[in-house]
Design a protein around this nucleic acid. Sequence first.
RNA 1: GUCCCAGUAGCUCAGUAGGAUAGAGCAACGGCCUUCUAAGCCGUAGGUCGCAGGUUCGAAUCCUGCCUGGGACACCA
Length: 556
Amino acid sequence: MNVVEQIKEQLKQETAAAAVKAGLVSKEELPEVVMETPKDKEHGDFATNLAMQLAKTAKKAPKLIAEDITGAMDTSKASVEKMEIAGPGFINFFLDHSYLRQVIPAVLSSGQDYGKTDVGGKKKVQVEFVSANPTGDLHLGHARGAAVGDALSSILETAGYDVTREYYINDAGNQINNLAYSVEARYLEALGKETTMPEEGYRGADIKQFGEELAAEHGDAFVETAREERLAFFREYGLKREMEKLKQDLLDYRVEFDVWYSETSLYESGKVEEALQLLEERGEVYEADNAVWFKSTNYGDDKDRVLVKNDNTYTYLLPDIAYHQNKFERGFEKVINVWGADHHGYIPRMEAAVQALGYDKEQLDTRIIQMVNLYENGERVKMSKRTGKAVTLKDLMEEVGIDATRYFFAMRSSDTHMDFDLTLAKSESNENPVYYVQYAHARLCSIFRQAEEKGYEYDPDADLTPIASEKEYDLLKKIGEFPEAVAIAADKYAPHRMTNYAHELAAAFHSFYNAERVVDAEDAAKTQARLKLVKAAQITLQNAMALIGVQAPERM
RNA sequence: GUCCCAGUAGCUCAGUAGGAUAGAGCAACGGCCUUCUAAGCCGUAGGUCGCAGGUUCGAAUCCUGCCUGGGACACCA
């Protein structure tokens, strides 16, 4: 447990003990003491609403209860300097801040590991995200999903979960046939032959390029080939090229998957049949109208779903069920799906399926990545998948840059609609929030360069007692909250809390930087102590930025 | 028609498991660079938390109804 949490825990215990000692409540009836950090510094370092909570059982006014508690409080152990009763009955604690100096050695000794906790208890968790069909370039929505899914995974890892990042490749359905038709059409087109793009075809620039390359490489070799053979080749070719591109784009975006799971492999290994059989054995399916239905209404779905169509082929749902069964068979205790908003309607049936297979509903958690609207110069940018006119992940990385793109997407709660302001994201000015955080890091690095120039050698054993100003303590407190901030972000699956934290940490540092000098020729002891403080800030900021996939530049 | 998400400052969004005078960034206004990077800091102004009820010591947060915007509702994936 880190220093800030320790003192908070101590404070909780002392408060609880005081309430019992004052005869307000028995030890058994005592509620969990809520100790929060007030937003307003005027309200102390910590505050509790215990007196209000006890108002009912103690049958007394909260303010009087608060007086009893503060009167019975042992203030020595938790560094309490002052207590105030405020508002409707809050007890505000003002601490002797010198305890915060202990944060520094804790951070310095942990280094890159600072922020790690074991709240996850090594639990095996799978995060499936992006999983875009290999039929075209990754677009805006995928970019958001990738940023959120990757940040979430990193946060869970740091909070002590055993995380697997996984991409499900939809390489078996109709869309792959359409991919083959589309490549064929573009190939023939490139040869100047008469052809029509199928209605359901993919019109992306990437496929046009494939067609041209095939034409250039193979000439008209495929024109005379039997259609079936030709399509089989284009299908294979298109899939391979799309996957290569997908993997490269994601890698460039700094997203690395542990597992790429192929839908086709589910068929080949017989897992799809297995899943169907299992559902049959468990009495979860029935036949009607020449089709096989999954009785998902047993588990709260709106209506039952077809698994096997009357032409004897499978719906997409069945392999999806098999895939989820396989996830649990691989030992994941928790399965998190990060899905696009268009998959929103599948959640109830997938949850039903998981339960029908005998797993607990709680083991599956699906997060929806809401729509992204693009704006440029105040105008909504219209996009169309049909015509292939869409802003791709690649476009974003080139135009906006990776750091700004990832920060922008990670910054927002993922389940709300989002306006992405291209003009703002592209601007290299203070209007752009990502620079605020990066600039703090560049400044931190600059301090060390200056210290070196002035002949200061960083001393890991320097005495920390010169650390005593308000700005220093504010910064230290923020640094000390990092492990808890990660744990909360993990618990709530809320990566945007990490960007909030990074911003707050940067703010605490900027404020300190403007108020106090680190490298001071007049005071070597203070300089050495502050260099250690600044080192701790640098480590923490780097770790926070790493969690959201944003680089920490040494200069700007 | 049913279901889901959203509605908070001029704009984009937070709001810590019901708490104090609802917070940030940008935009606006006023200050701060002979000293470690002014992509920064300090301050001012800006609000009927969509609307109406309810629950209680206390509601942006929980409940009910309504309004507005977006999305989902295939034997397509």
